[in-house]
Write a protein that binds this DNA or RNA. Sequence first.
DNA 1: TTGACAACTTACTAACTAGTAAGTAAAATC
DNA 2: GATTTTACTTACTAGTTAGTAAGTTGTCAA
Lengths: 191, 191
Amino acid sequence: MVKIENSKRTILNLAESLLQDKGFNGFSYAHIASELGVKNAAIHYHFPTKEDLSIAVIQRYRDRFKLWINNSRVKGLSHEAKLDWFFTIYTDMRADKGKVCLVGSMEAEFNSIPEGLQGEVQALHKELLAWLQSTLAEGRDAGAFSFKGEPADKAAVILSTLQGALQMARALGTKKFRDVIAQVKLDLLSP
Amino acid sequence: MVKIENSKRTILNLAESLLQDKGFNGFSYAHIASELGVKNAAIHYHFPTKEDLSIAVIQRYRDRFKLWINNSRVKGLSHEAKLDWFFTIYTDMRADKGKVCLVGSMEAEFNSIPEGLQGEVQALHKELLAWLQSTLAEGRDAGAFSFKGEPADKAAVILSTLQGALQMARALGTKKFRDVIAQVKLDLLSP
DNA sequence: TTGACAACTTACTAACTAGTAAGTAAAATC
DNA sequence: GATTTTACTTACTAGTTAGTAAGTTGTCAA
């Protein structure tokens, strides 16, 4: 018996990576198992079903995001720096083998993923939106951002843009992605 | 032999619908065949491989879009009405069983679709961007739109937003989608 | 030292996948 | 009226899928 340390975490890492790379219908237990050098059944031992595994990936991501935004390092940033921090989450994904955000990946195949997973995706999307909304609201009140309309709507626009731009970059390249980020900031920062 | 009139077109319609609903990895020849009341092999007769079929769907969509934008009905519209026409393409998709745009669907699973299909998706995305870019440029020159930066970048932002918003709507509902459209227009139309 | 448990492997199933080859019947062409 | 072509069906293959059941082995606690 070859022991892999922290199997559960390693499986989650690989599953997250595959979800962002190929989507729910594009990856299999065989992919994970072969990459890990174990048999399919070993994955089923830790996560009985594909739904269980995918849900665990999203839940871990939700926990991680919650930790980040409650961390004093992020809380202490200026309004503009908070926004930049959020954007780096997406630029980092793009830099990491052209990954796409989990939410976008799973919403694109929303109608062919299990119900429990749909619920997790919905919850994550709401949490991302909520943070961005309040960050935009506070930033505008403080004079750091300039935009018309409701912070909730502007947050939905910006999050949709980031999600779409990561996908666009797969066909049209990273330069296009960077241009989008720059344009979003231009729209938001100058008066 | 039960004859289906215009089989080829009917198959393309169904395949397009399935691609927008479940994505490339989420649909099979069996889905199409059963919906059509024929056997799998009948689909293979018209489109030998899944790649052939998917490419044909995108090519037809590209032709359709080219026809639309060269049609005098669209060419004769005001700048604002042109933008509204473009937005209705997406609101219609949302209204039609929560479909997602072809480009977004296939870019989300870009790394697990055939190469030839990737090329078609890329070509379609470029064509959509090109039209939107020139529409934005002309509209701003004429004083109908107001935005900072390059039309090419603003077009990439708006297209990414629409693409992301259709996906977002699957988890968060149609109201959120309409809010995004309204916000994009607010950002673009008022001075 | 024993026995329980964790973390696997082996071996399997049933369903589904894309794709093929050969046959058939109606319709169009000659 | 004969022949070819079109649009299928039947029957199949080889590979992949998620998932299960039973057996194995190293580790650790009592």
